[in-house]
């Protein structure tokens, strides 16, 4: 069931679009913004776009930043592309894995973090980098990562 707020935001988004279906990715993101992911029951959401759940899911499952599985409260997107790789991405990833107790694609047991790889974040001059939710963190070091995780854990972010 869509909430009143979601429904309103979706309708606004659709009204802005040249054609209903063109809003599909945006609409998925509206739901994702509030729930962290796009739940399996797509019927109602699809209907707002005059689509079937199959048609909408075909789109949803294509895009890497539409999550079709539950994620933690914060999503860590760590860049694994070439410049970051050269600049020690692997140690950063290992450090994150160890700190969070999860591998790529996993969610920490406290439900705080989900760790995902992401394609080049376009901040190669400041590699290695990662994004947590909407915020970019650059020139990562293991100490810096600890500080960032700590800040999110304490709810400072």
């Amino acid at each position: 069931m869509l909430t009143e707020g979601e429904r309103r935001e979706i309708e606004e988004e659709i009204a802005k679009s040249e054609r209903k279906r063109a809003a599909s990715v945006e609409v998925l993101k509206i739901v994702q913004k509030r729930r962290g992911w796009v739940p399996d029951d797509l019927d109602e959401l699809a209907a707002t776009l005059d689509m079937t759940p199959d048609e909408l899911d075909a789109v949803a499952t294509f895009y890497s930043l539409v999550f079709r599985k539950p994620v933690g409260r914060h999503v860590i997107l760590i860049c694994d592309s070439v410049s970051c790789w050269v600049m020690e991405y692997e140690s950063m990833r290992e450090h994150l894995s160890e700190r969070l107790g999860i591998g790529m694609g996993g969610t920490s047991t406290d439900g705080m973090f989900t760790l995902l790889p992401v394609a080049c974040l376009g901040a190669c001059d400041r590699a290695p980098v990662m994004m947590v939710d909407e915020v970019l963190y650059t020139n990562l070091t293991t100490e810096k990562i600890d500080g960032i995780l700590e800040a999110y854990r304490r709810g400072n972010m």
Binding site: T52, D54, E55, D57, A58, T61, F62, Y63, S64
Partner: peptide, 9 residues
Amino acid sequence: GRDFNVFAC
């Protein structure tokens, strides 16, 4: 038909 499609990438 509209209840069939291609998914993922």
